[in-house]
Design a protein around this nucleic acid. Structure first.
Lengths: 214, 214
DNA sequence: TAGATTGTTAATCGATTAACAATC
DNA sequence: TAGATTGTTAATCGATTAACAATC
């Protein structure tokens, strides 16, 4: 079915659908119509049906959607029907926070190692995940199947490391450094810019009490 | 000038412009044309000019844009020409990571306190920021000017706390809990969903090796 | 002045919403 | 069968890109 190119807007919404369906599942809701879901999610029913139909018909006329089935199917679309091995580059606060966040494993994301330059951190463990020297990074990647590298290191080092990582075969980068990273090749980069997010918040806060000029 | 409603797409791009202009400033670049900037940022020059013209004419024909001036002006638009007091609700790993991230202060975001329910954490300090009991939260807000509350607590507690916080007068929520929070009122919510971000990454990784069907 | 580049209007493209026939 | 709700086409809306006159 999936022939036409899926738009970025649709992809951005998929995890949100997945989350809401997961919540419904926890509440033992068996079926839901696009209309009901649209009210919960604050979107139009039309958009939900359009979005889902990018990937095929998951519903049934007169009935709606089976929550469990739709949840599973969106999970498959999101690639959650397999496991991912993750390494974290940078054992600072954010890197440690990610390592400690055990919820990712429930979704199939396994953190296998953390790397840092700081000798005082190397050798320590977080939830049984060892902090290793960055010098071992290349070797580790060569000997382990690593799907995703999370970059939680300073901006100044991010670009060089990203380039090394892709050279060593990493295809997925989850970048938390406050700089954009993009590769024209087949490397997928997902950026998380916390500072940007905070600025959007301050924009909206300021907008509120900004006097309409002229 | 700013009369027409600014679209969400434009707002999302503003922090990115701000970031790139900051980088240029660090490299002592004095002026830049929309064309040069568009090449650096991987967008069209047209889009840059359209975006900026939502807020007024910051450039000069035949010259381009003065980097420092534009940086300052976008900063003002983003509301970075004032200070914000932040409190963090939830002193878990992510809350501690945010508290430790001193860079926010450079942009005018000051973390004033952290709150948690865990007695073993209460009383500790992170970078001089005290971890307090959640019982003191209401009182603290009443006696201090708090602009933003960062929610780094479990999903199960996020909704109730968000509702309390707004009752006590908080107008800005920076939500890291894996659940959507929205208030129809004048409360601004900015959601950071790390799990969603990771799922987008796994989508794109899976898409790559997904066989084009039929 | 000639060249460069903006600000802005018009054209295009894409995404969202509305509508409704198909069908469970 | 009648009612409900999907899947899907058509209409609308909004955002991006192209073009170019204005102007530094």
């Amino acid at each position: 079915m999936q022939n036409k190119k899926i738009s970025k807007a649709v992809i951005n919404r998929l995890p949100r659908y997945y989350r809401y369906l997961g919540d419904l599942l926890e509440k033992d809701v068996v079926r839901i119509s696009s209309k009901e879901l649209s009210e919960k999610m604050n979107v139009t029913a039309s958009q939900i049906r359009q979005d889902l139909n990018n990937f095929g018909g998951f519903g049934q006329q007169g009935y709606g959607y089976n929550v469990e089935y739709l949840h599973t199917e969106i999970g498959k679309i999101l690639g959650l029907d397999r496991k991912y091995n993750i390494i974290i580059i940078g054992a600072g606060n954010l890197g440690q926070a990610l390592a400690n966040y055990s919820d990712f494993e429930r979704r199939g994301f396994y953190i296998k190692a953390i790397f840092d330059v700081n000798p005082r951190l190397i050798g320590l463990s977080i939830r049984g995940i060892e902090i290793r020297s960055i010098d071992e990074l290349e070797d580790f990647i060569k000997h382990n199947q690593v799907d995703i590298a999370a970059l939680t290191l300073p901006k100044s080092k991010a670009a060089q490391l990203a380039s090394d990582l892709t050279k060593w075969g990493i295809k997925g980068l989850w970048n938390f450094a406050p700089t954009d990273i993009h590769f024209p090749q087949d490397v997928i980069v997902e950026n998380v810019h916390l500072a940007d997010s905070l600025m959007k918040l301050s924009y909206k806060l300021s907008e509120k009490d900004r006097p309409a000029d002229n």
